[in-house]
Design a protein around this nucleic acid. Structure first.
Length: 223
DNA sequence: GGGTGATCATAC
DNA sequence: GTATGATCACCC
């Protein structure tokens, strides 16, 4: 088994990612001596962590980019036979308190999305997990219009959070970026801002990219 | 069928 | 609880 060392530079990372194109998840898992789950119901992060490992991402639970030294965030994305995303893409947890002075440019969303290596993976449930193949990787940096859309949504959502309206926010807010629950379950609680400016408890939220947005990103290369 | 809200595993 | 990795599954 070859040791997995973090890629030294961007070129090396891209080379590794391109070598995975067309490979099945079972092939990679076998190399690593990792069992393939029968489905992802209880292994929702399995594909992502397998690819992370294979590409030499720094393991850990830090709120940082996967390849900090390269300024790259890694995202696997499940796609259907047409190459369309099957799921929204989780970005990061949403800050609900101590957000005075927080700007788009200083936000975690902005930082993480500065440069993303998208690794498409067949994700239709009818395909056995092990038989699902990895697709062509896409290194993406948001263009001015994409940045504009992201910033608009982020500012609208954060404004409502700051005003104590987090409970009124739904996944329907935002054109490309949405806020949704991100927790062990609906009973999980964290601090948030109340309408009178004091603190209250609410279900933790996370930022997600909507599928129409990620579909556009993938299509820029596909077509 | 698609999208929103809910949930799963794991490390610390 | 918070953070990582996300997909599940129910309701419209």
């Amino acid at each position: 088994m070859k040791p997995i060392i973090p890629p030294q530079n961007l070129t090396e990372l891209l080379e590794r990612a391109h070598m995975l194109a067309g490979i099945s998840l079972a092939q990679i898992a076998a190399q690593r001596g990792i069992p393939v789950p029968k489905d992802l119901k209880r292994d929702k992060g399995w594909v992502g962590q397998l690819v992370e490992m294979e590409l030499g991402a720094t393991a850990g639970s830090k709120p940082e980019q996967d390849f900090l030294h390269l300024g790259v965030e890694l995202k696997t994305i499940p796609i259907d036979a047409q190459g369309k995303p099957l799921e929204t893409t989780y970005v990061c947890v949403a800050p609900l308190i101590n957000i005075e002075g927080l700007t788009w440019q200083s936000s975690l969303v902005c930082h993480k999305l500065q440069r993303v290596l998208w690794v498409p993976v067949e994700g239709e449930r009818q395909i056995p997990v092990g038989e699902r193949r990895i697709g062509t990787p896409i290194l993406w940096e948001p263009d001015p219009q994409e940045l504009y859309l992201l910033q608009q949504d982020w500012e609208e959502i954060m404004e409502l959070i700051a005003l104590g309206q987090v409970e009124k926010l739904t996944a329907r807010h935002g054109e490309v970026l949405q806020l949704r629950p991100k927790a062990a379950n609906s009973k999980a609680q964290t601090q948030s801002i109340a309408e009178d400016g004091s603190l209250k408890m609410t279900n933790p939220r996370g930022f997600y990219l909507k599928t129409a947005f990620t579909a556009m990103i993938l299509n820029k290369v596909f077509g």
